[in-house]
Design a protein around this nucleic acid. Structure first.
Length: 415
DNA sequence: TCTGGGGTCCTAGGACCC
DNA sequence: TCTGGGGTCCTAGGACCC
């Protein structure tokens, strides 16, 4: 069955850094990093020195003394990322956005209008460059996995089309680390049995892979290594969970630290849930200790919640449980709250605190109604005057925050 | 001078039901 | 009383992705 390669994977190159260089021409051609304490993105000039995203700013400066740190024009990132995706939308409705700077598109249905997939990809790259001033790389293949690998190979600012018939030749010489689902742990496990290329992986007996990686991962990698990728594009994916976390440095594990932090995190999460009318049933907290080891604890409620103080109290109970089980840990370095099992709530009014044994939390109780009213009031004030107008203990946390809220919002998925 | 923050998926054991 | 099997949900942890 000889089909055509119609799946595109488009990926803006060094996105945040490219935007900064676009906005300030004096930065072009220079090694720059977006961020401060942590490198959020590095230009290709900086990458040549080994600077990578996620790296501590201090280490980046060691590797590249002339590195220029820039503040981050977050609103422009959102605007330009959206604009690039819109270019894809002009060619086909079958677009699956992966993140702010990356998307799949299937052009099978529009070649009669715009020509071969290669021509469409070329046109997209020209338009993004001409209209937005940004470099974008595109991979074209029959499967999502191969299109994604092709765009990685195409970078920076390139196009790679993998025609049917040449797929395995293309794939099998590449390192396994380019595959979806192969991170540091899997890479080193594969290396233990002498597998470094995708071809070597393809030729490995499936039983050996299953023993090494488990049934799901083993079969998946074996299939991908032979370019068998059944995944279709999903144009409308909704999030299954929403969370927030805050790195604290090294803080004592006491209520004075924990309570306001959880309230702030609960506020971030719960206000998003309320805004999209998607309360959730499972609350998970994560506590990271001084040595960066972490513990999670979760509870699944009978009824979904999205009230801020309710969420903060449940999270507090879970965190206290964690600390009670680890009495020797006196210092915490991170707290996180996540809500999953998200439901569709037709009416926000349904979201009263239900489902706990605690008498005070029964629906219709005065306390529950009062809290519900407080959330509504805060949501309304924010609608009118902005997020900063009112909040929970944000001032106290200001100094500890290492990543601006605007950046956090860029990473949020549509609920 | 030991990496931030928002997500997804898989695994494995236990509880519980049929 | 003992034995077997399958399915689903919950919890905790790990790996991975952007």
């Amino acid at each position: 069955m000889e089909t055509t390669a119609t799946i595109l994977h488009a990926d803006l190159d060094a996105f945040y850094a490219s935007v900064e260089q676009l906005l300030d021409p004096s930065l072009r051609g220079k090694p720059i990093a977006v961020g401060g304490g942590v490198v959020l993105a590095a230009s290709y000039e900086a990458r040549a020195f080994g600077v990578r995203g996620g790296m501590p700013g201090r280490k980046a400066r060691e590797l590249c003394p002339q590195l220029i740190f820039v503040g981050g024009n977050f609103s422009h990132y959102q605007r330009l990322g959206d604009a690039a995706i819109k270019v894809l939308d002009d060619f086909t409705p079958v677009v699956e956005r992966i993140s702010i700077d990356e998307a799949f598109a299937d052009v099978a249905g529009c070649t009669h209008l715009f020509g071969q997939p290669r021509d469409i990809a070329t046109a997209i790259r020209h338009r993004v460059r001409a209209e937005l001033g940004l470099p974008i790389s595109i991979g074209v293949a029959r499967t999502k996995h191969l299109a994604k690998i092709a765009s990685q190979v195409a970078k920076p600012d390139g196009l790679v089309v993998v025609d049917p018939g040449t797929e395995l030749d293309f794939l099998h010489d590449l390192p396994v680390s380019l595959m979806w689902g192969v991170g540091p742990a899997t890479k080193s496990r594969l290396a233990e049995i002498g597998i470094q290329t995708i071809g070597e992986l393809a030729r490995t007996h499936s039983g050996a892979l299953t023993r090494l990686l488990g049934p799901a991962a083993g079969e998946k990698l074996a299939a991908l290594a032979w370019n068998r990728d059944p995944r279709k594009l999903e144009t409308r994916r909704r999030a299954h969970s929403a969370g927030a976390q805050s790195a604290l440095g090294q803080k004592p594990a006491v209520a004075r630290v924990i309570v306001p932090t959880l309230l702030h995190l609960a506020d971030r999460v719960a206000s998003r849930l309320r805004a999209k009318a998607r309360p959730g049933r499972t609350v998970t907290v994560r506590v990271r200790f001084a040595d960066l080891s972490a513990v999670t604890r979760s509870i699944t409620l009978d009824q979904p919640i999205s009230a801020t103080t309710m969420l903060a109290e449940i999270a507090g109970d879970l965190v206290r449980g964690v600390l009670a089980d680890h009495p020797r840990e006196k210092t915490i370095s991170l707290l996180a709250i996540s809500v999953s099992h998200l439901e569709e709530s037709a009416e926000l009014q349904l979201d009263l605190p239900l489902g706990l044994a605690d008498e005070k939390r029964r629906p219709g109780s005065k306390k529950g109604l009062a809290r519900f009213g407080a959330d509504r009031a805060i949501d309304k004030i924010r609608e009118r005057f902005g997020k900063q107008a009112v909040g929970y203990g944000t001032v106290a946390l200001e100094a500890a925050r290492s990543v601006p809220d605007e950046f956090r919002e860029l990473a949020e998925k549509e609920l």
